[in-house]
């Protein structure tokens, strides 16, 4: 890649940051070039973010309909999945899935709620509700 081929169109997922790429300058040397990013990297990040947001939206709709607990929404909103939440909280995956059932979730003791809330970086009060 030549220096003038380094993407600079801008990538909104970078939030104004520039990332370092390496490219060939006029003398043929590979040098570090700060890049504003371009379509290729933006597209794949937006795709990954959209996939996670879709999961969160879906969980939210189901939580509103009373089919699942807010816990599932918060897990998705914090970009986690069941295996990861299980690793972070130390609660088995099948128990987490059980806690997605609204009637089970409503009866969770405070210390379990705290463990989830802590792992997700929110308060136990927030965890009980949808934003």
């Amino acid at each position: 890649m030549d220096v003038d081929a380094v993407p600079q169109e801008g990538n909104r997922t970078l939030g104004g940051h520039r990332k370092a790429l390496y490219a060939r300058d006029a003398d043929g040397r590979m040098v570090l070039v700060p890049s504003r990013g371009g379509e290729v990297d933006e597209t794949v990040t937006v795709q990954a973010i959209a996939r996670m947001n879709a999961l969160a939206d879906d969980a939210r709709a189901r939580a509103l309909a009373g089919i699942t607990a807010p816990l599932e929404y918060w897990m998705c909103a914090k970009r986690m999945d069941v295996p990861l939440l299980s690793q972070v909280t130390g609660i088995w995956q099948w128990r987490i899935r059980r806690h997605f059932r609204p009637e089970k979730f409503a009866r969770l003791p405070q210390h379990i709620l705290e463990r989830y809330a802590d792992a997700l970086g929110i308060s136990a009060g927030q965890l009980r509700q949808l934003p």
């Binding site: 380094v6 370092a20 790429l21 390496y22 990297d41 597209t43 794949v44 990040t45 990954a48």
Partner: peptide
């Protein structure tokens, strides 16, 4: 998309 993300987006200096 995931392959390309690992290649371009996750701090690799390109390619």
């Amino acid at each position: 998309g995931h392959i390309v993300r690992m290649q371009e987006e996750i701090g690799t200096g390109g390619a």
